[in-house]
Amino acid sequence: MALIEGLILQTTAYREHDLLVKLFTKEAGIITAMARGAKKQKSQLTVVNQPYTWVVVDGVYPKNQQGLGFINSVQESRIYKNVLVDLTTAAYAALIAKDLTVAFEENEPQPVWYAKMLAAFDQLNQQKDPQVIANIVELQLLPVFGVSPNWQKDPLSGAETGDFDYSEKYNGIIEKAHFDMDDHRLHLDQKTVYYLRLFSTIDIQKLGAITLSPVTKRGIQRVIDYLYDRQVGFQPKEKRFIQKMAAFEGQFQIKPRKKEQE
């Protein structure tokens, strides 16, 4: 038996009353644990039905880092309420959870990313822009997927300041003097480049208020989607849901009517 601290990323019904709970734990990284009877109405494990809940449970880690662990009782819990009540925030939380479960093998300790994950959900719960939080996580996860763009300086000249664009050919940013060396550079505006560079290294725990224009947010997302499509080869259904949701909301934006001439 052990006290297991972690965040519930996902739950899956198993048999009539049981639940499989995917936890990102402080000590063992991502694990899957069985919660017997958790779906029963009067179960003391009811809280583990809710994703994006931080818990300390009395349970058992997977034996020999294989198979399932077990959850026997819940000692502490904290629900990220603001993450759940807002549809857009919940959608980005689901995307972050999926990215983490794909990036990391189960039963491998990830203390640095456990701290980052909790910081990300704390920021979501504080009602920071969910797309910004998700973009930071996506950019910082790229090296875990084996993709490490150079956001810091032009590899050709070493320049760290100036006007830059992203070049897949040179795996990162190149300065204006070298734009003609890649006909397929992404033609990014400088504000987008600035935030890509910032988000790739920023400490999520220290994130202050960031307000971005829709144009800049679209530019950042375009680059991230480009990298995940072409270099990671990963397009989760959670992201497609966000895209459809944004398109749906755009259809219902009310445009001001033109004043009729008298």
Rank of each mutant, 00 (worst) to 15 (best):
T101P: 11
P62Q: 02
L95I: 07
L84E: 10
F24M: 04
A103M: 08
A93Q: 07
L84G: 13
L19V: 00
Y52L: 10
T101Y: 12
K42S: 12
Y14Q: 11
Y92W: 10
Y114V: 04
K42I: 06
T46W: 01
K26E: 11
P51W: 00
Q65P: 06
T46F: 05
G37H: 02
L68R: 02
V112I: 15
A93C: 06
A90Y: 15
N82E: 13
Q126G: 09
P130E: 05
V102P: 08
V132A: 08
A94E: 05
Y114M: 04
E105I: 11
I79A: 11
T89P: 05
T88S: 15
Y92T: 05
D58S: 15
N125T: 12
K22M: 10
E27M: 07
Q44E: 13
K42T: 10
G67T: 04
V56K: 12
D99I: 12
K116Q: 13
P130M: 05
V112P: 09
A13G: 14
A120W: 06
N49T: 05
F24G: 01
E106R: 11
Q110E: 08
H17Q: 09
Q66P: 01
T89R: 13
L45A: 00
R15W: 03
R15N: 14
L84K: 14
Y92Q: 06
T88I: 14
A93N: 07
L68W: 07
